[in-house]
Amino acid sequence: MLLAALLVGGCPAQAQQAAPVPRDTSFTVHSAYVKAKKQHPTITVARPPVPRHVRTASNLTYCALAGGRELKLDVFYPRAKRRQTFPAVLIVHGGGWRSGDRAQHVPLAQQLAARGYVAVTAEYRLSTEAPYPAAVQDLKTALRWLRAHACPYAIDTTKVAVWGFSAGGQLATLVGTTNDDPLFEAGTCYRSHNSRVQAIVDADGTLAFIHPESGEGDDRKGPSAATLWFGASKTDRPDLWQQAAPLNHVSAHTPPILFINSGVARMHAGRDDMRRQLDAFGIYSEVQQFPEAPHPFVLFNPWFEPTVAYTVNFLNRVFGR
């Protein structure tokens, strides 16, 4: 039963560490660069200098799972003056729900911290380890951890955003459109704190799986990334595929959303339908697009700096900074 794969709290010292699941390394910054460079020979990997005054707390455990498996995150934060607090951003990596790594967005996290945000890069269980909805539950747990640790990092817990790229964009938007939904809250880690977010940034993440614009779920050459994540094809379990679509969770309580998109249309399937729903509720949304860019544009120059700028400008607007 899928929902049985819930997070459990507890002291990791009391249990043996679970054997690590072999990682799928098919999506890395290097592999994405080699592929994108064929069509965009002038691109470079975005590795800007580490900004001054940005502090880092690395490899922190945000929850221990059954069997001693520990979920990790990193925090990048500005130096605070007395009684000063900062909005926070949880950053979610992509990789088809199966690959990828939180370290891919360290440059983004550092740049956000330099601009007055506490940026958190968190791992989550991939489909090689646990099927949907485990990844969503993990990320909501990371948000609860963030609020529980607001004091040491000077976090303003009323101003929390989630940012995601590709599969991470889908996850970020699902996390943000399901505030307070008990289906996606699991385990005992920091349950006295909430996982709500007040803003969403979706960089090329699909908003709908069963949709005319969607390219997810083509299993003709083998199980697709989404099929592997859901543990069933969209023909066999359309209910799960619909349930995981952020488009199907829009309500009057949905936070403002920024969509940052490449020129690959299928990567933002359902975006325009979602914006129409947001408009009907009077919820602010914004689209910024790089029509010439490949899908993993957020990792490369010349698109990295504009992506940072769009993100910061949007969050400043939403949070009244």
Rank of each mutant, 00 (worst) to 15 (best):
L2V: 15
L2D: 14
Q14H: 12
Q16S: 09
Q17P: 00
A18K: 00
A19F: 04
V21G: 05
P22A: 07
D24P: 04
T25W: 09
S26M: 08
A32C: 09
A36F: 09
K37Y: 09
Q39M: 13
H40S: 08
P41S: 06
V45T: 07
N59P: 01
L60F: 11
Y62M: 07
C63G: 06
C63M: 10
A64Q: 06
A66M: 11
E70H: 05
A80M: 07
K81Y: 13
A88T: 06
V89W: 00
V92Y: 02
G100M: 01
D101L: 01
V106L: 04
A109D: 03
A109F: 02
A113S: 14
A122H: 05
E123Q: 14
T128D: 13
A130G: 09
A130K: 01
Q137E: 13
D138L: 03
A142M: 11
A142P: 09
L143M: 11
R144W: 04
W145K: 00
L146W: 01
H149D: 04
A150I: 10
P152H: 09
T158I: 10
V160S: 01
A161G: 10
F165D: 10
L174E: 00
L174C: 04
V175M: 05
V175C: 07
G176V: 05
N179R: 11
N179V: 03
A186Q: 03
A186T: 06
G187K: 00
H193M: 12
N194S: 15
V197G: 01
D204K: 07
I210K: 09
H211T: 08
G215Q: 11
R220C: 13
K221A: 15
L228K: 14
W229G: 05
W229C: 10
F230R: 07
S233K: 05
P238W: 06
P238R: 08
L240A: 08
V250L: 02
V250Q: 01
H253C: 06
P255E: 03
I257Y: 01
M267L: 15
R275S: 04
R276A: 13
R276H: 12
L278W: 02
A280C: 06
G282I: 11
Y284Q: 14
F290D: 03
F300M: 04
N301Q: 12
P302M: 09
T311F: 03
N313D: 15
N316A: 10
